[in-house]
Structure formats: C-alpha cells, structure tokens
C-alpha cells in the first residue's frame, strides 16, 4: 500500500530529527454493522515498527480507535548515515514496508 514518509535527507551528528509516516489503511473498527445488521469484521493495523540501520528505535501498537490512514510522528537522534525501515503489520496477514535514507555529517 501507498505510504508517505518524511525523513530529513541530511542531518548533523547528534541532531534530534522528526520522522513522520502516513500509510493507507481503512482501519475498520469491527464495531460497525452493515444496513442488514451484519457485523463488519475488524481490519486494522496492529503494530508499527521503525528500524534505524537494523536497530529498532520506535514501536507502536495500534487499536480500533485509531482513524483510517494512520499518521505517526516521532523523534530520534541522528547518529550515522544509513537507512530507516518502516513496517506496518495488521489483521488478515496485512504487511507493508517502506524505507528512507539519511546522510549524517
């Protein structure tokens, strides 16, 4: 699925940088009914992780109260040049990944 990632392309060593992620997902709560009374099954993202050169720096668990197309922003310290890898895992075997690179001077 489509994802929008905002990681600064460049940073100085030791800088605190903001990472923003937005991904496509309907986040169906599992509490809604169709017009004929059937329950719409839950379909949400349950977990998000971010790895910085392989090491996990941020993790979040997501729940039915979170709106569609979840937006997450968090901070980290720019230590070395490399790659951020993002992974979203959810119901019905949902899995989506994205990555972004950074140059640290």
């Amino acid at each position: 699925m489509a994802a929008l990632i905002n990681v600064p392309a460049k940073a100085r060593r030791g800088d605190v940088i903001e990472i923003r992620t937005l991904t496509s997902h309907i986040m169906e709560t599992g509490f809604r009914h169709t017009v004929d009374g059937k329950l719409v099954p839950r379909d949400i993202i349950t977990s998000f992780t971010c790895r910085y050169n392989g090491a996990e720096i941020f993790r979040a668990d997501l729940f039915p109260a979170i709106a569609a197309n979840p937006y997450l922003s968090f901070f980290t310290v720019a230590k070395e040049s490399g790659k951020f890898e993002f992974e979203w895992i959810g119901d019905n075997g949902y899995s989506s990944t994205a990555s972004a690179s950074i140059t640290v001077e």
Binding site: A2, A3, L4, N6, L22, N69
Partner: peptide, 14 residues
Amino acid sequence: DDDTSNPGMLFVLD
C-alpha cells in the same frame, strides 16, 4: 499544506 501529512496524497500516489 504538507504533502507528507495530507492523506489525500495517498490516493494521488495510487
């Protein structure tokens, strides 16, 4: 204003 926080851009990408 920010294309990385505008969820409409997800649809534009699709």
